[in-house]
Amino acid sequence: MDYLQYLRKDKMPHIWCDGCGHGIILKSILRTIDTLGWEKDNIALISGIGCSGRTPGYVDFNTLHTTHGRAIAFATGLKLANPKLHVIVVTGDGDATAIGGNHFIHAARRNLDINVIVFNNRIYGMTGGQCSPTTPTLKKSTTTPYGNPDSAFDISRLAEAAGASYVARTTTFHVAKMDQYIKACFLKKGFSVVEAYSNCPTSYGKMNKETGRRGVDMLLYQKDNMVPIEKAKDMSDEELQGKLVTGVFVDRNIPDYTENYSIVKQNSKK
């Protein structure tokens, strides 16, 4: 396929570092759009702030670069005002689950029909490598130089518990699975999430040696430490330490917000 038809070529070069995984996720999004044959005019791609936040600037859709953490709030208004739009939110781990955590769980709760792709590199990349809500315990960042005392969020389980229709997790190494999950996410009615572990050699890799310091090392680290969700069920917490559990967390057919609100509209006219 021709990726260039979806890119704003005059906005290149992009700001992502050598070895960053975000481009892998973006390509998967574009491949899926191409596979589904969606019209560019009917796609709105919305982001918050951070490395993932720069994605909309590079793609030839209706694009909206919002305030930090608020992409899902903006997307809520846009989707309800124009339900014909395919609304895709791209967000990072900090954007989605720290400053924007409230919007993330509530959009999942009301099962709003939007697609959310979380670029989870487990660090604040744009500001130079501070810990995020998904930085694992005792891993290092520029604000946790002696190790992170916090526990990490499991974004996929959070979305599942909050009421999302579809939730899957993969890594930037497992590209075939990523395509499969993003396609299912885009086709699903209701709040649909794909969480993709991404590699940030510039910040995370530099400070946490076990993943390797180059992008390719980090991709191989993901390959070696990936555990399918089916297998993870039979593993102990100790065995799962440091592992990346991937797969489909939930895939259910439940009424989405618009379906429920259409009943509200009918009731108002009785």
Binding site: I46, G77, K79, A81, N82, V264, K265
Partner: peptide, 27 residues
């Protein structure tokens, strides 16, 4: 809802402000 519009009670004031901006961009 009577006039075919949308009312939504958001999770907070910040989200409410974001939502009206998104809706306005949607026309």
């Amino acid at each position: 809802p009577m006039v075919g519009g949308n009312f939504i009670q958001m999770e907070d004031e910040i989200a409410s402000m974001g939502a009206i901006i998104g809706a306005s961009l949607g026309g």
